[in-house]
Design a protein around this nucleic acid. Structure first.
Lengths: 338, 338
DNA sequence: AACTTTCGCTGAACCGTATCAGCGACATGA
DNA sequence: TCATGTCGCTGATACGGTTCAGCGAAAGTT
């Protein structure tokens, strides 16, 4: 009860293997009549193409790779990645392409994975996330010649196409919204300083605050964990002149900050306004529900996957702007106390 | 600048391809001297085995599959899966085995994925999660002959080995702890009723409550979302005789429940005790921090992966009990109000 | 009618590895 | 001394597809 092969089909159809291959791949070279007959037989005996054989013949691996480089504990609590993955998958499944996933502890390990995957012919390309400033992965991937798209600002992606959404625009929306509510002292609890998008937000934050009459705009960097988010919040709220609003770089830190505020008997939103980033169901579960920057993460993933598939298929490249983020006001923001 | 193959190595070493294959796979058939020479050459020219060719030769695909069957939105917020995945990966990486991931909307789609993966020779086996009562995947996987391990109670896994942790023991720990604190009315906000482990917990909950003198023990089923967790909590707390403690089936619902309680001006823990399940960083971020059932999810994943690899390698089967869960008391539980 | 083109198909080569039968050289045992 | 292994290696083949050159027949062109 072995798996049927095209040879079996060829025998039953009374044609050669080559004809079967043409018929099943929609290639010219067989009559429509024969094609239909062959397809019917393939269907009947439950034939599936063997990916190994197919990719050995110089074709594709029909898989793309995704490497996540964050500690397990942090990954779990960050809904971003799961949503991204499911978005990627939606696009891949439509093209019967598989996703290879690996979680690694460091950039070196990540690079080693790309080397291995590409060397072994396991993947046709990869999606790179969490772009760093002067990211060491970029030159390696370029040199390998492996098709790849980067989710992140195109300024740091070298020759690789990027799929990104403009963070500056939405950050401006956030600051101007808070400024309009009368906030003049806005703090930012940021993520990892090594990440490129953190830097971009950092710069834009300072600039936009200055423009909007927000005189105080301190930034604290963290590792995205709730723990560090809580600690940063505690420090900010303990300082002599405490901010009247805090913008967080992810949801879990915003929730942690909310708890710290409540612990310190500060009412949210009347005494402190809170804005989260990358809105997840979490934001709506806490009281008050969190005002947050939201964007369609699965759509970003789908977008990246689509771009990669096009790159693999036709070599066609080019950075594309993905779905835009926008501010979703909820209960955690209010006019600044007088 | 093609990828080097064993033929290239053979040429440079002045031996046959066969000898190279033996040398690089640790097989007998070459002298240690020749082996070392061949390995050095392989190293030098950067040779990597081509998985396609390797698996075509009847060997392995060197990949295992994992299919997640939950809507994208729910997946993201549930830290469980990411932690499980990173645990699986840790074990796989050590055996240079890859993980194929797919997210699907239904069991039928999931089964189709197994059929395809196995038919195409893409995977050597799979890990099944979210076991249902009378799970339709079990007979299909058995019939396919695909090695698989199931994370869940062995009562429903047919001939497939299971990796599970005893939920009844820890549930007893929870109930007896709450009973000891004087709680006589404990509600449970459960997950999807179709899941086998929900049923097991349901049954055990009723039984243990009865034994422990907990006279009232209502159960509400949900879909694991914070939204439904909040709604269930609201309903429970609005009833005439409200529970003095609620046990939730996951973290996000526990957090949602906590918010609802605060919204209803019920103090946690003095007026309501809350226990979460599958402790994530989330539990420690809210105030009060949540008493929760905790277990080492990455370890469970690693365990499952290890069992699967052994099953693939030697056909050796057998269910194994994984790391045990235990109760971690924090700030959200207290003696029942008089 | 002779020539060219197109169609539908065949047969063989090829991708990179694993594996098996066999072969000479040498060691071992009776 | 001869039969018997064992060692280290070779050469061939298999795996399941893709792809290419080529071939006979039919159709079209002049």
């Amino acid at each position: 009860m072995k798996r049927p092969t095209i040879a079996d089909i060829a025998k039953r159809a009374g044609v050669s293997k080559g004809a079967v291959s043409y018929a099943l791949n929609g290639q010219p070279g067989v009559s429509e009549e024969t094609r239909a007959r062959i397809q019917a037989i393939a269907q009947e005996i439950g034939w599936r193409p063997n990916v190994a054989a197919r990719s050995l013949s110089g074709a594709r691996a029909d898989a793309i790779g995704l490497v996540l480089c964050r500690p397990a504990r942090f990954l779990g609590v960050e809904p971003f990645f799961m949503e991204l993955i499911s978005g990627i998958e939606g696009e891949l499944a439509a093209n019967s392409c598989a996703l290879m996933l690996q979680v690694v502890p460091s950039h070196e390990a990540e690079i080693a994975v790309y080397r291995r995957w590409w060397g072994e012919g396991r993947v046709d390309g990869a999606i790179l996330v969490d772009l760093h400033a002067d990211d060491p992965r970029i030159p390696v991937v370029e040199q390998l010649g492996m098709p790849a798209v980067v989710t992140g600002h195109p300024s740091g992606t070298g020759s690789l196409p990027a799929v990104w959404s403009d963070e500056v625009v939405v950050l401006r929306e956030v600051i101007e919204y808070l400024a309009a509510l009368g906030h003049r002292h806005i703090a930012r609890v940021a993520g990892l300083p090594a990440l490129l998008h953190t830097r971009i937000r950092d710069e834009a934050f300072a600039e936009i605050c200055a423009e909007s009459g927000v005189t105080e705009h301190p930034v604290v960097h963290t590792d995205y964990t709730g723990e560090q988010g809580a600690r940063a919040t505690r420090r900010l709220l303990s300082s002599r002149a405490r901010p009247s609003a805090i913008v967080y770089d992810n949801d879990i830190m915003a929730v942690a900050g909310l708890s710290v505020a409540q612990e310190m008997r500060l009412d949210v939103p009347t005494e402190l306004s809170i804005v989260g980033w990358d809105d997840s169901p979490l934001s709506q579960v806490v009281r008050p529900s969190l005002t947050a920057v939201t964007r369609d993460i699965p759509a970003c993933g789908a977008h990246a996957a689509q771009t990669l598939l096009r790159l693999i298929g036709s070599g066609e490249t080019g950075s594309l702007e993905g779905p835009a983020a926008r501010l979703l006001p909820r209960g955690s923001t209010a006019p600044a106390g007088m």
